[in-house]
Amino acid sequence: MARLTENAKGVYVIAVTPFADDGALDLESIDSMVDFYEGAGVTGLTVLGQLGEAPKLTAEESRIVVERVLKRLDGRLPVVVGVSAPGLAPMSELTKAVMGEGAAGVMVAPPWTIRTDDQVFAFYQSVGETLDDTPFVLQDYPLTTNVTIAPAVIERIVRAVPNCIMLKHEDWPGLSKITALRAASDKGGMRRISILCGNGGLFLPEEMGRGADGAMTGFCYPEMMVGVVEAYSAGNPDRGHEIFDAYLPLARYEQQQGIGLACRKYVLAKRGIIKSATLRKPGPRLSALDIADVERLLARQAVRLKQIGA
């Protein structure tokens, strides 16, 4: 598989990690999930992300998940692997393992201990050196890391760290950050890197309008993200918004802190993509009222999609 480059675009869906009812890895559901994502038209997959429950996996389980995904895809789509860790040694170890198996690149979020701009820069400079020539994605997700990275700091990192080739943009609000980074590359202040956006796709049409190259996030209907990105790429933003609007109520519900992933897995299981909606403990479960909310949203969504022919 070719390595990730600054030209990456499209939808790199954040994959869930399927578990059986008893919390064990469900390898067969990994296969069916990969098949579904590929059939939905995604450009690539990202595994071991935060909503892939990566912190709940052992080191061996992490390798098993990556190997299974890569084997199922057999080189047809690129795979990015989350390797964030408190230290550089475990990050380097997992990176070498997954790149050796055929991953296209890795993703790194900053540790919560970082506070200043210089500390952010120094961390990613060390990441670049530690990972050698492995292309990596800078994950900018202050809502969970509590680390704020200003556009000027990202510019500084991109200029100094050649293997930083993509920004996973999840700042909120963050549209002005996309604008600033695109202006910087347009003026020659930094090389142009790929910008894929997260936050469940809640701002995807606006992000595409600001110059994003696509999405790197999860949602129980990745068809929404694929449809929006394809519409914008075809020069038809109105169609992109029409598709987005049809899915927005469910996407908004799924974005709730705490139960959002439980909602996503519930719908994926309901769609027959994974066998069980189980989250590995500790993790929330949907209440009967939560499930009723989701079912109502699904019914309304089906009506709207039929109306717009999507």
Rank of each mutant, 00 (worst) to 15 (best):
L261I: 10
R271H: 05
Y247E: 09
A234G: 05
E242K: 15
G260N: 12
K265S: 09
V229R: 00
M216R: 02
P284F: 01
G283C: 09
R264S: 08
L261A: 03
I243C: 00
L261K: 05
V267C: 02
A246V: 09
M225Y: 00
P282C: 10
G283A: 07
A269E: 12
L279P: 15
G283I: 09
F244H: 13
R252A: 12
G240Q: 03
I273Q: 08
N236D: 15
P237T: 03
L268D: 08
D238R: 09
G283M: 08
A277H: 12
R252H: 02
V228P: 01
A251C: 11
A231C: 03
E242A: 13
A269K: 11
A269S: 14
G235Y: 03
K270F: 00
P284E: 05
V226Q: 04
I274E: 10
K281L: 15
Y247D: 09
I259D: 00
I243D: 06
R271K: 12
G218Y: 11
P282F: 13
E242H: 01
H241Y: 14
A277C: 13
I273H: 05
G258L: 04
P222I: 13
Y247G: 05
P222H: 11
A231S: 15
E254C: 00
S233T: 10
K281H: 12
V267T: 07
R280Y: 03
E242M: 11
G283R: 08
P237V: 04
R271D: 02
Y221C: 10
R239Y: 00
P249D: 05
A277P: 14
N236V: 06
K270Y: 07
H241N: 13
G227H: 01
M224I: 08
A262R: 04
K265F: 06
C263E: 03
V267I: 15
G283K: 09
G283Y: 07
K265V: 10
Y253T: 06
G260W: 05
M225N: 01
S233E: 15
L250H: 01
R264Q: 13
G235D: 12
Q256S: 10
Y247P: 11
K270I: 01
T278P: 02
I274D: 08
A277Y: 02
T217L: 09
F219M: 15
G218D: 10
A231N: 10
P222S: 12
A231P: 06
K281I: 12
V267F: 02
P284W: 01
M224Q: 11
N236C: 01
R252Y: 04
R264G: 06
V228N: 00
Y253K: 09
I259V: 15
Y253D: 07
A269C: 04
C263Q: 00
P249F: 02
E242F: 00
R280T: 07
A262M: 09
I273S: 06
P237N: 04
V229N: 08
C263T: 15
G258H: 05
Q256H: 07
K270A: 13
V267W: 00
Q256V: 08
R264M: 15
S276Y: 09
L279H: 11
P249N: 14
F244I: 03
P222F: 07
R271V: 04
Y266T: 07
T278F: 04
